[in-house]
């Protein structure tokens, strides 16, 4: 049963065929969610797939929103032990909960803090053995809190993301970010959100149903997989849309109307 349900999301991301080499290599995945429908389960799902035993993927998790024990509990329910993975040097957890960049004299400037973070990620990747250096997933949870840590300056965050992006072309790693769509709703030009959408190769939107809340459907996912890799396989351009229900240790994905 588990296989069937998670397959829709995996299919949309191209994870259903092969996991080695990692299909999200060199790509940027942007997840956008809303207050009513948290998209963090997509993040957990991707983390679980990246750390699955038959791949050599290494994940670097930059956590602004939750502590390690939180992710450990969630992932344990999904059948993945983060503590073991951390000891095996396949999971690197960068706790950013305390990152504050107050600026001013003496303290760390927002830019300085983000440069240091970038340096840390780069360092982590470059000391990896050659084989796993090609399969790194950088996960950021989440961008809005990063913006808060950078004193509300989205420009610094965009600069940081640009440098993360250079990592995707330098090392072929993948970058997964989570952001909240509705906190930009009042701005007449949600520049930061749009920038992210332009950058993303895969955009995943978690939205509530237009018809309102329902007990057996928690929301819908729209996955836009833009393949603009010239020369290589550019056939990946596809869009999928399906409903999901988040359960205790599994997420069910199904097409609208296919379940009573």
């Amino acid at each position: 049963m588990e296989q069937r349900y998670s397959n829709l999301l995996d299919e949309a991301l191209g994870l259903d065929q092969t996991i080695e080499p990692w299909p999200l290599r060199g790509r940027i995945v942007a997840i956008e969610d809303q207050v009513e429908t948290s998209g963090s389960f997509v993040l957990h799902h991707l983390l679980k797939r990246a750390l699955s035993p038959n791949s050599s993927n290494v994940s670097i998790f930059i956590a602004f929103s939750q502590s390690f024990s939180h992710y450990d509990r969630v992932l344990r329910k999904l059948g993945c032990n983060l503590v073991t993975q951390r000891d095996n040097k396949r999971f690197f957890f960068l706790n950013m909960l305390k990152l504050q960049c107050p600026g001013g004299d003496g303290g760390i400037t927002p830019e300085g803090g983000l440069i240091a973070l970038y340096g840390k990620i780069h360092e982590t990747i470059s000391v990896l053995p050659e084989i796993s250096r090609k399969n790194v997933t950088i996960i950021i949870d989440d961008l809005s809190l990063m913006e808060v840590a950078a004193n509300g300056s989205s420009d610094y965050v965009l600069n940081f993301l640009h440098y993360c992006r250079t990592l995707t072309s330098e090392f072929d790693c993948s970058l997964v970010t989570l952001n909240h769509e509705d906190i930009y709703a009042s701005a007449d030009r949600p520049t930061f959100l749009l920038q992210m959408e332009y950058l993303a190769d895969i955009l995943i939107k978690a939205e509530p149903l237009a018809t309102g809340l329902a007990t057996d459907v928690h929301g819908q996912l729209t996955v836009m997989n833009k393949g603009i890799n010239y020369g290589q396989d550019s056939s990946r351009n596809k869009i999928s849309n399906f409903h999901f229900k988040v359960k205790e240790n599994i997420v069910e994905c199904f097409y609208p109307g296919s379940r009573g």
Binding site: G119, N159, E170
Partner: peptide, 21 residues
Amino acid sequence: CYSDPLGWKDRLIEAGSFTAL
């Protein structure tokens, strides 16, 4: 102007916490 637009890599090299490949 893509690889290092703001000179961050240089700054990190100066600080000694960066090994350019």
